[in-house]
Design a protein around this nucleic acid. Sequence first.
DNA 1: GTCCAGGTTTTTA
DNA 2: TAAAAACATGGA
Length: 287
Amino acid sequence: MMGIRQTEHGVELVRTEDFDLAQTLDCGQSFRWRQEEDGSFSGIAFGRTLRILREGENLLLCDITTEEFNSVWKAYFDLDFDYGALKLELAGISPVMAEAIRYAPGMRLLRQEPWEALCSFIISQNNNIPRIKGIILRMCEAFGRPLPDGGHAFPTAQDIAGLHLEDLAPLRAGFRAKYLLDAAQKVASGEIDLDHTAALPLEEARAKLQTIQGIGPKVADCVLLYGMHRLEAFPMDVWMKRAMRVLFPGESPSLFGKYAGIAQQYLFHYSRMHPELFESKRAASGA
DNA sequence: GTCCAGGTTTTTA
DNA sequence: TAAAAACATGGA
């Protein structure tokens, strides 16, 4: 397992073979991290800014105390979970799964805030990742609480719920703006309690989330997986439909068991980075 | 100009 | 019911 130690520059993680920054923070699960010129990553979660530096084999979480690490970032990066054991188990399921893991062995599933995940994946529909990041950035800068370092927290549901549709125009979110408003109103009013939803049986949780305008099966599964850490959720976007059809013909997500959501994340990233695997997709789509 | 992007809703047959 | 079309926006 990974070790940690406090230094004068922050908290250092040692033996990080199961934690790669780019693979974890730039794999399509979160949208508020960016890589700086010097290679470090900066991001904001839970209203806190963090910069992370690779130092050889180690990772340095800059300028934080052990207390902040333990109360915020340890859970966010899912550091209590043994990815080494999980990877062995998943790799045993199929050679393709093993290859996807080998391609990004340092990927981890973040435990993001439910409300942020909900908004992020509403914005993601029929959209591309650079533009998703831009919309979220503008949303935070316009409506999120300013932080001492100049950044902005992700706006709360209450921050958004009282706005009018035209207030969201500067986000340039297109037709998704009205969905954000509906989500904010349902969450801020208490009509939907995300913490409660997170604990419901999977089908009930899905159904509850889908009462929000603009949330269908795929976005609901993203909220469950990335925002509620429901690892059995398996978001089926265009890439995963291709991956299942071409790489696992005749199979269903249940092949991957209780950690199907993490398997999905390895496969999503692997597929997106290997589009040539699916170039003959037309031929396979006949009757 | 046309097509496409981690889909969902609305319209049409 | 099931398959198209529409939905905003911006980069390739």
